[in-house]
Amino acid sequence: MVLRVDGLEVRYGKLHALRGASLSVAPGETVGVIGETGSGKSTLARAVLGLVPASAGQIVVDGTDVTGLNTRQWRAFRRRGVVQYVFQDPLRSLDPDLTIASSLTEPLRIQGVSFAEAASRARELLKRVSLGPELLDRLPGELSGGQRQRVAVARALIVEPRLVLLDEPVSALDSSNRVRVLELLKQLRDAGTSLLFISHDLGSVAGVADRVAVLYRGEIVEQGPVRDVISRPTHPYTKLLVGSAPTLRSAAADRAARASLRALLTSEGAVS
């Protein structure tokens, strides 16, 4: 397993953001995590990266139990370039004062690779995300949102990570850029990189992921192959989620069905 998360709990003061989430990603697999506002999806990504501490549970990344690492051990582990992260906001995920070349090469430079070597890798990666080498000398402000997000993906890939975490990578993009980034993710998946694709949008995850996990109020309430989860959801929340997705041809569920699912979830929520 490239990633195994077992009974992960994260608390921020009183807020219980994750309440025992379990999840795994096999080598070369793409797992989608679906969660809406307040489900704990960003917390999940940040916990796996060690950016927030876990209050309970275990996280194993590529055979290393990272749950108890101290700062120094974390740094050494991160420098191996096993995991990389792509953020939601393409506006702020690149340093506005650094050229694309210095942003792209940064992960390699941190590992101590020479600039010349890192720069030639950067050129390769730009090509891989279908961007021209002329962008290397530009600043992020001179790029469109879609280009910036592809640069962010390229930066994540430059260390050839085993696992890439993507937190809402396409939510801030317009539809044509969204499609381009999703196509890029498919290429990555087909090239054998494991992806953990976190999003609120079932549709964009379904197009890329092999398996999907549904995160609701800090718990994974359902997981399985994409087709099964979408066509035969078992948890009421998943049913509501699938039944709410706007579709063109056939209504996924009718109003009455959704109303009763909402009533069911509310009554459950009232107990907790």
Binding site: V226, R249, S250
Partner: peptide
């Protein structure tokens, strides 16, 4: 990139299942 491709295959089944 929508759910339609899953639903056009299993559309009827899904509607039944959800209901």
């Amino acid at each position: 990139y929508g759910l339609d491709r899953f639903l056009s295959l299993d559309g009827a089944a899904l509607e039944g299942a959800v209901l």
